[in-house]
Amino acid sequence: MNPQESAAAPEAPVAEDPIKAQNAQVLALLHRLAGEAAFTDVAEPYGLLTATTTRERIHEIIAGLQQDQELKFHFLTTLCGINYPENEGKELGIIYHLHSLTKNIRLRLKIFFPIADPVVPTITDLYNAANWLERETFDFYGVIFTGHPNLIRILNVEDMDYHPMRKEYPLEDGTREDKTDLFFGR
């Protein structure tokens, strides 16, 4: 485990051991909550424990993290979407950043799901902060959060008919030729 981690985080903070110990504690809690099989791609890039799980389990996992008496993940730092068009069946993702303020541990959880069926359970019942963040993710990526009280666009106009942060919408017109650069290939 150790060599892989140090490869992933070349400039990990000097006080590495306490962070490793904390992350191990959180990972143990995650495994206790949903079983070891529920998590894949567990890594610690730059000292922040990251795990991938499934959308079926995410709500119960986050609820369990929030209710845990020792670690108390009471704070939802942020939540955002991501789009990997090449990953068949896992094109869209949601990334949750949670923070335990009592122990000062951060945790990153990811879920991936197909773009054809972008339905994810809401966590607005757990954190009020998730409300607008989920609306933003809906606005940008078209992720439907089931159970969200008011899932409408937040930053873009309501009559917009696409979700602009998806990679299928490049920033500039791809057919333009005056901007292609033969020498640098972009």
Binding site: P45, L48, T77, C80, I95, H97, R106, R108
Partner: peptide, 22 residues
Amino acid sequence: APVGEVYHAVEGGNGELGFYLV
């Protein structure tokens, strides 16, 4: 740039200003 993801937070004027970079 290396392949990776990083979250960095600073104390902004009105709260935790975070940057999540993939």
